[in-house]
Structure formats: C-alpha cells, structure tokens
C-alpha cells in the first residue's frame, strides 16, 4: 500500500510517496502504524500528546475521510487503495 504525503510532511520524510507492507485485508491502522514506524519524524507532526491524530492533520482513504465515511483506523483496505496524509489546506485569512 502506498501513502502520499504533502507539504511539510513530505519534507519531514524526504519523500512524497512511501510504501508500506500493509495490503488488502489489513486495516488503515496497520498501514498508519507502519508509516510512522518507517518515518518516526512524522510522529511529532501528526500526533498529539495523547498519541491521537492531530485535529488539523487530514487523512484520506481513496479521497474520503475514513473517520466520517468509514470505520476510522479499523477501516479494511482493498487492493490498490490510495492513502494520503496532509496538513491543513492552504487557508488564508478571510
């Protein structure tokens, strides 16, 4: 399974795409743990003090938010699914 990383997350890992072992039948949580295991630098950016995903960090599974549209970290992955992790979008003051 492949993670796509953007902005400062890609800079922290030095790569925009990271392969992890998790595959079809594994959970999103497995793939996420493997990503952090491979790139421990990400932890300080994407996890809060409790070890939960920071509120402002967004995670997409096949373009959808698995925490509202799926089973969160228990979501089961399929073949060729795309995972993405990114900071808040560009924003700007109103």
């Amino acid at each position: 399974m492949e993670w796509r990383l953007f902005a400062n997350l890609a800079e922290a890992t030095g790569s925009k795409r990271v392969d992890v072992e998790a595959g079809a039948g594994d959970t999103l949580g497995d793939a996420f743990e493997q990503l952090l295991c491979e790139h421990p630098d990400l932890e300080a950016i994407v996890l809060d003090d409790e070890g939960d995903l920071e509120d402002h960090i967004r995670l997409l599974h096949d373009e959808r938010d698995p925490f509202t549209a799926g089973e969160g970290f228990d979501t089961v992955l399929g073949t060729g699914d795309e995972l993405a992790l990114f900071p808040p979008v560009s924003g700007g003051r109103r």
């Binding site: 953007f6 902005a7 967004r58 997409l60 993405a84 990114f86 979008v89 560009s90 924003g91 700007g92």
Partner: peptide, 13 residues
C-alpha cells in the same frame, strides 16, 4: 472561495 480554501487539498509555501 471559502469552500475552496477549506476543502481543496492545496498547500502554500
């Protein structure tokens, strides 16, 4: 424009 800024995955350096 508010929705574009909030929802579209674009990152600004």
């Amino acid at each position: 424009i508010d929705r574009l800024k909030a929802e579209v995955p674009l990152f600004k350096k």
